[in-house]
Design a protein around this nucleic acid. Structure first.
Length: 575
RNA sequence: GGUCCGGUAGUGUAGCGGUUAGCAUAUCUGCCUGUCACGCAGAAGGUCGCGGGUUCAAAUCCCGUCCGGACCGCCA
């Protein structure tokens, strides 16, 4: 290799002859003298070419953006008045400039890449990925991966791979299916997660397992969701919930040290699901700022404002002064998140005006006291069923965060555990019960007796989520290891023993052969890297992501396939 | 499936009933020996996403459609 150093590694010790290779970022041709910037993944340095170097000068005149070039010359300090700090204190005086390859004019200017529409960036992803910002993200991703495996190996976890071609189970997300040529008419499914496999590894005695697992879910995309994504999957035997939380907290601490060079103090804050929902309207609250709700159900109960009088919950959040237009916009958000409306009040001195002010004359002092709203500020209310009221106001809280930059001045990272998720969730539309986490989650021992009773919605699961900055970074649970409890759980979600046998027979069978108590977690690796890097979208930390429609605009996937391919698989595409 | 925002030279944008469709940058040409988002002068570059409608006249108003993004549904 002719290259003597990566550009970003250059420092005072390199003064003297160097050979560098990279891409041309920018050329400044002064006529009698040419400067250009040479860039590789580690950094950028200025190259100076004097006309006395006839050959080099001629070559430098040919350079254009994104040409690949090799420079030999002398790494030197710039004239004193031209030093701009760091690598900009130095420059390379070129003796030779060689064009290694030419480049077409790029479809967008790389140093404006952040402002270019994302479909253009995705179409030319290999150019987008040349941008220093993207290279930083992918290098941070690599360091995060390394920190994880380093920690897991040191903690005695065993890395085991599980199949990518597996069996479709109707639970959870929609499966990606893969037709089987050797078994015409039958399909594999790509794994939504290695859940059952990792539990069987526990049964098999590998009492600490981990894997960086690719997972696949055929659901609609979001800025933090891709159809194929990466999980840190882990599972431990002979542990209780505290053991799992403790180990995972130390893992996060380790990642912070290695990747961000920051000290994270443990234990992490915790909220129960109930508390998180009640105060912040989310099971993944953004705690970089407070702005919790106040409960004012009692103040309105039986009062003259009929919409609130009989509500299960009336919640209020204090906001700065808002225009009617902003309130209307927030109401739209509240409604989209299930609320019937968004009531409001404006504080003027020691009273309220506007909105529902004529209904609150009797309770003004209590409202002022409980919300602490500033003079001129606005109170925003939702009411109704508890979960609807808090979820809608939670969405409003996040809109206010973005509107008023509420995270400014707060901590950059706010990780916490959310615990005690409900075991079961009632789906009003279908009138059925379903699991909240997944059907292998163990209930709290003291709640298990409620299975099959009217109070089964009160069963708390030994399930937990790791939340950071309003994103669910990971989650997991203590699993059911008792076959009878597993059957109870299946019955509770409407699966008969026969149906359970049909869908999960192999798993239930394994459960009967001596299953240790076990529990674990899965981390959304892409999301973790997104939050650590401060990127606004998961797509910014994935090398080749898909757009909102699940398309890879560069490779052109998905695509039609040849008739012959379909035939071989025994498939026919419906017109 | 739904709601909202957007689609105008390669890129980013202005224009919102009558413009030669403006600006910046990139590109090309010429000049320029300390620039660093180099500068200066010039040139080229547009089916205003697509289709229909209203109008004397549509980038602009209306309807439909396609495309991108955010969110709801969905995602254990």
């Amino acid at each position: 290799m002719k290259r003597t150093a990566l550009i970003g590694e250059l420092n005072a010790t390199h003064l003297g002859p160097v050979t560098l290779q990279g891409w041309v970022t920018r050329r400044r041709d002064l006529g009698g003298m040419i400067f250009f910037e040479l860039r590789d993944r580690s950094g950028t340095v200025q190259v100076q070419v004097d006309p006395e170097q006839t050959e080099a000068f001629a070559q430098a005149g040919e350079l254009r953006a994104e040409y690949v070039a090799e420079v030999t010359g002398t790494f030197s300090q710039r004239p004193e008045e031209q030093r701009k700090g760091g690598l900009a204190d130095y420059e390379v005086l070129a003796a030779g400039v060689q064009i290694l390859n030419r480049a077409k004019t790029p479809p967008f200017e790389l140093d404006k890449g952040g402002d270019v529409s994302e479909d253009v960036r995705l179409r030319y992803r290999y150019l987008d990925l040349r941008r220093p910002e993207m290279q930083r993200n992918l290098m941070l991703r690599s360091r995060t991966w390394a920190a994880i495996t380093e920690f897991m190996e040191a903690e005695g976890f065993i890395n085991v791979e599980t199949p990518m071609l597996t069996r479709s189970t109707p639970e959870g997300a929609r499966d990606f299916l893969v037709p089987s040529r050797l078994n015409a008419g039958e399909f594999y499914a790509l794994p939504q997660s290695p859940q059952l496999f990792k539990q069987m590894l526990m049964m098999a005695g590998y009492d600490r397992y981990y894997q960086m697992a690719r997972c696949f879910r055929d659901e609609d995309l979001r800025s933090d969701r891709q159809p194929d994504f990466t999980q840190l999957d882990l599972e431990m035997s002979f542990v209780d919930q505290e053991d799992v939380l403790e180990m995972n907290s130390r893992l996060l601490q380790h990642i912070f040290r290695r990747v961000l060079d920051r000290e994270l103090s443990l234990p992490l804050p915790r909220l129960t699901y109930q508390e998180a929902m009640d105060r912040y309207g989310s099971d993944k609250p953004d705690l970089r700022f407070e702005h919790a709700f106040s409960d004012v159900t009692d103040l309105f109960a039986g009062g003259e404002f009929k919409a609130f009088a009989g509500a299960e919950a009336v919640k209020v959040i204090a906001a700065p002064e808002l225009t009617r237009k902003t309130i209307d916009e927030l109401e739209r958000i509240a409604k989209q998140n299930g609320a019937g409306g968004l009531a409001w009040l404006k504080r003027s001195g020691d009273s309220f005006t506007g909105g529902i002010s004529k209904f609150v004359t009797g309770i003004t002092p209590q409202l002022l006291e409980r919300t602490g709203v500033e003079d001129g500020g606005t109170l925003l209310f939702t009411a109704g069923a508890w979960r609807t009221a808090v979820e809608a106001l939670g969405a409003v809280r996040l809109s206010l965060r973005d509107l008023f930059d509420w995270t400014a001045g707060g901590p950059e990272f706010a990780p916490l555990w959310v615990t005690d998720f409900p075991q079961l969730d009632y789906d009003a539309e279908s009138g059925t019960w379903t699991y909240m986490h997944h059907p292998f989650t163990s209930p709290h021992p003291e709640d298990a007796a409620l299975f099959g009773t009217e109070r089964q919605h009160e069963i708390r699961a030994q399930a937990y989520d790791l939340v950071m900055n309003g994103f669910e970074i990971g989650g997991g649970s203590v699993r059911i290891h008792n076959p009878e409890t597993q059957r109870q759980m299946f019955r509770a979600i409407g699966l008969s023993d026969a149906e359970a046998q049909e869908k999960f027979g192999f798993f239930l069978e394994a459960l009967d052969y001596g299953t240790p108590p076990h529990g674990g977690a899965a981390w959304g690796f892409d999301r973790l890297v997104m939050v650590l890097s401060g990127a606004p979208s998961i797509r910014d930390v994935i090398a080749f992501p898909k757009n909102n429609r699940g398309q890879d605009l560069m490779a052109g996937a998905p695509s039609p396939v040849a008739d012959g391919q379909l035939e071989e698989l025994g498939l026919k595409v419906q017109e």
